[in-house]
Amino acid sequence: MSGFRSGGSRAERAEVQRRLATARRGAELLDRKQRILQRSIDGLAERADAERLAWEELAREAAVWLRRTTALDGADRLAEAAPSDTALATVRWGGAMGISYPEDASCTVPAAPPAGGSSALAYAAAAHRTALEAAVAAAASQRALLLVSEELAATRTRQRAVENRWIPRLEEQLTAIERRIAEQELEESLRLRWAAGLM
């Protein structure tokens, strides 16, 4: 015989049913979030690849001009042409689905001191500025892709936990409670029949 009262078991069943409905709804929302994140990742990956390729191309071009100006002007003239201040990267953050990630980035490069030298030096400076700006944009895109990918992985982990652990555990609890309620109802029915047979 069960030590539980029928009313208590029914309240317990209602609570487990409520929690099970919440878990199932949570799994649905996590699945929806995964699909949205995957679409975002697809777009971010395409953008990150394009910006990385653009940066690599500009970096190669800057390297060519660096070799030319080093050969024509020498290392000393090249060092004199370098700006005294550092470049400043600015990242504009945004996000979606509770994730914050870089949406855009720009780079402010300080003006270089006037320097003599060949035209290759001017071309090298301009090429390096452009490559640096592209590098900042590519880095921001890569960071955005990484952050959204990490969120997707975490969302998948949470969904698996809900679907493979939480929901089955609640379903087992509900089955046990319903079995207990059925036993209590059968016991009560037998008690009533037995009492009716004695009268």
Rank of each mutant, 00 (worst) to 15 (best):
residue 2 S to V: 02
residue 4 F to K: 12
residue 4 F to H: 12
residue 5 R to M: 10
residue 8 G to H: 13
residue 9 S to Q: 11
residue 10 R to I: 14
residue 12 E to N: 14
residue 12 E to K: 13
residue 13 R to L: 09
residue 13 R to W: 00
residue 13 R to I: 04
residue 15 E to G: 10
residue 19 R to L: 15
residue 23 A to T: 04
residue 24 R to P: 04
residue 30 L to C: 07
residue 32 R to G: 08
residue 33 K to D: 13
residue 33 K to H: 04
residue 34 Q to Y: 00
residue 36 I to Y: 08
residue 36 I to E: 12
residue 36 I to Q: 12
residue 38 Q to L: 08
residue 38 Q to I: 02
residue 39 R to A: 14
residue 40 S to F: 13
residue 41 I to W: 07
residue 42 D to M: 13
residue 47 R to M: 04
residue 48 A to M: 01
residue 52 R to E: 12
residue 55 W to P: 00
residue 57 E to C: 03
residue 58 L to T: 06
residue 58 L to C: 12
residue 59 A to N: 09
residue 61 E to N: 09
residue 62 A to V: 03
residue 65 W to C: 00
residue 67 R to P: 00
residue 70 T to N: 06
residue 72 L to W: 02
residue 72 L to R: 11
residue 74 G to H: 08
residue 74 G to W: 11
residue 77 R to V: 15
residue 79 A to F: 02
residue 81 A to C: 01
residue 84 S to T: 14
residue 84 S to M: 05
residue 84 S to R: 13
residue 85 D to C: 03
residue 85 D to S: 10
residue 86 T to Y: 07
residue 87 A to L: 05
residue 88 L to T: 15
residue 88 L to D: 12
residue 88 L to R: 15
residue 89 A to C: 05
residue 89 A to T: 08
residue 91 V to Q: 02
residue 96 A to I: 08
residue 99 I to Q: 11
residue 100 S to Y: 09
residue 101 Y to D: 00
residue 103 E to G: 12
residue 105 A to P: 09
residue 105 A to R: 04
residue 107 C to Q: 12
residue 108 T to G: 08
residue 109 V to L: 14
residue 111 A to Y: 07
residue 112 A to F: 02
residue 114 P to V: 06
residue 115 A to F: 00
residue 115 A to M: 03
residue 116 G to R: 00
residue 117 G to T: 00
residue 117 G to A: 00
residue 118 S to L: 00
residue 121 L to M: 06
residue 121 L to S: 01
residue 123 Y to I: 04
residue 123 Y to F: 04
residue 124 A to L: 01
residue 124 A to I: 03
residue 126 A to S: 12
residue 127 A to N: 10
residue 128 H to D: 07
residue 129 R to F: 02
residue 132 L to K: 13
residue 134 A to P: 05
residue 134 A to M: 05
residue 135 A to T: 03
residue 137 A to N: 05
residue 138 A to L: 10
residue 140 A to I: 10
residue 140 A to Q: 09
residue 143 R to A: 14
residue 144 A to W: 09
residue 147 L to F: 05
residue 147 L to C: 11
residue 148 V to W: 01
residue 149 S to R: 14
residue 149 S to K: 10
residue 151 E to P: 08
residue 152 L to D: 03
residue 155 T to V: 10
residue 156 R to W: 06
residue 157 T to F: 05
residue 160 R to A: 15
residue 161 A to M: 09
residue 162 V to S: 11
residue 163 E to F: 02
residue 164 N to W: 09
residue 165 R to K: 15
residue 171 E to G: 00
residue 173 Q to L: 11
residue 175 T to L: 09
residue 176 A to Y: 04
residue 180 R to H: 11
residue 181 I to H: 10
residue 181 I to C: 09
residue 181 I to D: 06
residue 182 A to L: 13
residue 186 L to G: 01
residue 187 E to I: 03
residue 192 L to N: 09
residue 195 A to S: 11
residue 195 A to G: 10
residue 196 A to Y: 05
residue 199 M to V: 05
